[in-house]
């Protein structure tokens, strides 16, 4: 474990906590894409199957369980909570997620480290995570309202993978033979998807004004 990866994991955890707090405190999920939350739940389920058969460390196990539980809690709030579910923008959150899931699954069948069920599902989760934020970014463009907490959530979610990029560079130079091409390429694509958002987020922060997205 290195400081970049720990910072990445903590940023990821913090992003989820911020979203949960926003939903719990304001009893509203306005501006939040349920599709992105469901895609992330799929990412965690398909990636953390090894919870059942391999123990890596207490930290690894605890974090996986936290990510799974928080992902399903957010989905429960947005689908079932009597007050919160009324604030969900169903008409605007219309991204066709099958156009993300099917290509990622086909790619995982074609490009993977090993042709086994768990390995293909793990690879699928790596590809899917790279595009899971798209429904959320599209929703932001449509609704224009980027409330502060949702903006912070997306910024931290993008930042965690950028910190992982630094972690991979660090490990490449410090651990002989450490290679993870699939994860590296996918993680780079994932970070690039956020670049446009980062630009407008930092601009709003510098001008100390509410974040607004172009027309």
């Amino acid at each position: 474990m290195n400081i970049f990866r720990l910072a990445g994991d903590m940023t990821h955890l913090l992003s989820i906590i911020v979203l949960l707090l926003k939903i719990q405190a304001t009893k509203s999920c306005a501006g939040v894409s349920l599709k992105t939350q469901e895609l992330y739940a799929v990412v965690f389920v398909t990636r953390y199957l090894d919870l059942f058969y391999s123990f890596i460390s207490l930290y690894n196990t605890v974090m996986k369980i936290i990510f799974l539980l928080t992902a399903f809690t957010i989905i429960w709030y947005m689908r079932k909570h009597k007050v919160v579910c009324q604030t969900y923008d169903k008409e605007q959150d219309t991204f066709r997620v099958l156009f993300l899931i099917v290509p990622c699954f086909v790619l995982a069948l074609l490009v993977n480290h090993e042709m086994s069920v768990t390995e293909v599902l793990w690879t699928f989760s790596i590809y899917l995570e790279a595009v899971a934020i798209l429904p959320q970014l599209v929703l932001l463009q449509r609704t224009k309202n980027v409330d502060n907490l949702t903006g912070n959530y997306i910024f931290m979610l993008g930042s965690y993978r950028a910190l992982y990029l630094v972690n991979w560079v660090y490990r490449y130079f410090t651990e002989l033979g450490y290679r993870q091409w699939i994860v590296w390429v996918s993680g780079t694509v994932q970070t690039c998807v956020y670049l446009d958002f980062f630009y407008y987020y930092v601009q709003a922060w510098r001008n100390n004004e509410r974040m607004k997205l172009p027309g």
Binding site: R5, S54, I56, S57, K64, E119, Y164
Partner: peptide
């Protein structure tokens, strides 16, 4: 095949 040290990340 991924080695165990390649499987230690979240």
């Amino acid at each position: 095949k991924r080695s165990s040290k390649q499987k230690d990340e979240l």
